[in-house]
Amino acid sequence: MVEVQFNHILMHVQCVFYIVAAFLILRKAKKIYLENYTGASLESLNWLFQFTLALSIFFSIALLKNIFKFTAYPDVAEWLKVGLILSELVIIFWYLYKALNNPALFRNIDSRLKLVSEIIFEDKNINPGVIREKEHNSTLLTLKQYMTEEMPFLNPSLTIQEVSKDIKIPVRELSVLINHNLEQHFYDFVNNYRIAYAMDLLKDASQNKVTVLEILYAAGFNSKSSFNTAFKKHTGQTPTAYRKSL
């Protein structure tokens, strides 16, 4: 029936719009996470992306099944239906496994966070005609002194909220200082200190027997891939190559 076909088309077009919207939101969320979180906290974002991708693949198979339903190959649609049922079970068990073994993944999402660009735009609207580019020297000095002396970057789950609480600077002001004035994401800002700390350990002759894996964990990283990426971005070399060149 034409009406049934039209309903199927309308339903799938709607789902496509929802999926596209979900990935656009995830892209914005990635920027927010990089501006406010580091290492371990980004696992929540990776989990959201993986789950959205899995659902997108599931929907693509469902779309293919419904296409075959209206062709001369309805048997293919039936086989795809069986595949969807099995896929659904896999997704459900995967979701439960993640929830039971990593409950923190579902508690690290703060919907109140905003992009720095939005914060700056709001500040300009509150004070029309005034560009709020204050002198941040004293604040920046306090921040750098805190990072050097207290070494909070050794915490793999460090957030901008924790730094704000320790140095008694509002999150809003601190976020603008790092992400806008220093033109760095909080993620990169913290990683610079971690890399400098790791480089000191790699250069230390007394640490020759310490493996690169042990050093990356000691420096506050929580995975070898993120450490290698950040180290190469900062030095142009891998940690192993850097150690051999000393």
Score class of each variant (00 low, 15 high):
Leu34Ser: 11
Lys28Trp: 04
Thr235Ala: 02
Glu43His: 02
Lys165His: 06
Leu140Gln: 12
Leu26Cys: 07
Val82Leu: 15
Asn46Ile: 01
Lys203Arg: 09
Phe121Lys: 11
Ile19Gln: 04
Val90Met: 13
Met199Gln: 15
Ile167Ser: 09
Asn7Cys: 12
Lys28Gln: 07
Ala99Ile: 03
Leu63Trp: 15
Ala62Val: 06
Leu113Ala: 12
Ile91Gln: 10
His180Tyr: 15
Leu63Asn: 13
His185Val: 02
Lys31Arg: 14
Ser60Arg: 15
Ser44Cys: 09
Val116Asp: 09
Asp75Ala: 05
His185Asp: 14
Leu80Glu: 03
Leu45Asp: 01
Tyr217Gly: 02
Val116Phe: 10
Asn155Asp: 15
Phe121His: 09
Cys15Glu: 14
Asp188Gly: 03
Phe49Lys: 07
Glu122Val: 02
Ile19Trp: 03
Phe49Val: 06
Ala72Cys: 03
Leu100Phe: 10
Glu3Leu: 11
Thr148Gln: 13
Arg27Thr: 04
Ile92Asp: 10
Ile195Ala: 04
Val90Asp: 11
Phe59Asn: 14
Val176Ala: 15
Arg27Gly: 03
Lys124Gln: 10
Val130Ser: 01
Leu84Ile: 12
Pro74Tyr: 05
Met11Cys: 11
Tyr73Pro: 00
Glu149Ala: 09
Lys114Glu: 15
Phe227Asn: 04
Lys31Gly: 00
Tyr95Met: 10
Lys124Asn: 09
Ser138Cys: 02
Ala29Lys: 11
Ile61Glu: 13
Arg132Phe: 03
Thr211Ser: 14
Leu201Trp: 05
Ile178Thr: 14
Lys114Asn: 14
Phe221His: 06
Lys134Ile: 10
Gly83Glu: 10
Val212Cys: 04
Ile32Asn: 04
Ala218His: 06
Asn36Cys: 08
Tyr187Leu: 01
Val130Ile: 12
Asn155Lys: 09
Phe17Asp: 12
Ile167Leu: 13
Ala99Asn: 00
Pro74Lys: 11
Trp79Glu: 02
Lys203Val: 01
Ala40Lys: 13
Asp166Met: 06
Lys81Phe: 08
Phe51Leu: 06
Leu26Ser: 04
Met11Arg: 13
Ala29Ser: 07
Leu105Asn: 08
Ala40Gly: 09
Ala196Lys: 13
Asp123Thr: 03
Thr235Leu: 02
Gln145Met: 11
Glu214Trp: 00
Leu105Ala: 05
Leu45Ala: 05
Asn228Ile: 06
Leu89His: 06
Lys81Trp: 07
Met151Leu: 11
Arg243Trp: 01
Val171Pro: 07
Phe186Val: 03
Asn179Ala: 05
Met151Ser: 11
Trp47His: 12
Leu158Thr: 00
Glu149Met: 12
Tyr242Thr: 01
Ser225Arg: 10
Ile85Val: 09
Thr139Asp: 13
Glu135Cys: 02
Asn66Asp: 15
Thr211Ile: 05
Leu113Lys: 15
Gln14Pro: 03
Asn222Ile: 00
Leu100Ile: 12
Lys165Arg: 09
His180Phe: 14
Arg172Pro: 08
Leu201Cys: 08
Asn66Trp: 13
Glu122Phe: 11
Gln5Val: 11
Tyr73Trp: 10
Glu150Lys: 11
Thr38Met: 00
Phe59Cys: 14
Leu96Pro: 10
Leu154Lys: 15
Thr211His: 01
Thr71Cys: 06
Tyr97Phe: 11
Val90Tyr: 14
Glu78Pro: 00
Arg27Leu: 05
Ala104Gln: 12
Val210His: 00
Gly236Asn: 02
Ile178Arg: 15
Leu53Pro: 01
Leu53Ala: 13
Ile120Pro: 12
Gly129Cys: 02
